[in-house]
């Protein structure tokens, strides 16, 4: 199969797969690392969780513009 003939849908699948993987991968980074020298240790300071809504929005966009 010629690479030029690869269906466009594969791109959307790849993008969605990538964002799902990122959603899980951020938690491989230790919490202590992301809250280092933060003014306090409140839960919202954990920027790993900030990535989750970002990933969800991206999933929505790539599903919408398939």
């Amino acid at each position: 199969m010629n690479p030029a003939d690869f269906p466009v849908e594969w791109a959307n699948f790849a993008a969605i797969g990538l964002f799902i993987a990122i959603g899980f991968a951020v938690f491989l980074v230790p919490r202590s690392m992301v809250t280092k020298d933060a003014p306090d240790q409140k839960r919202w300071r954990d920027v790993r969780w900030w990535a989750i809504p970002l990933v969800l929005v991206q999933l929505g966009l790539y599903l919408l513009f398939t």
């Binding site: 690479p3 030029a4 690869f6 398939t66």
Partner: peptide, 23 residues
């Protein structure tokens, strides 16, 4: 124009190039 990705043989933004080169 409402597709996030363009065909693999597109001159400017072929989707394999977008994923491998850009992303």
């Amino acid at each position: 124009h409402l597709h996030a990705f363009l065909p693999a043989d597109h001159a400017d933004f072929p989707w394999p190039g977008v994923l491998m080169g850009l992303a």
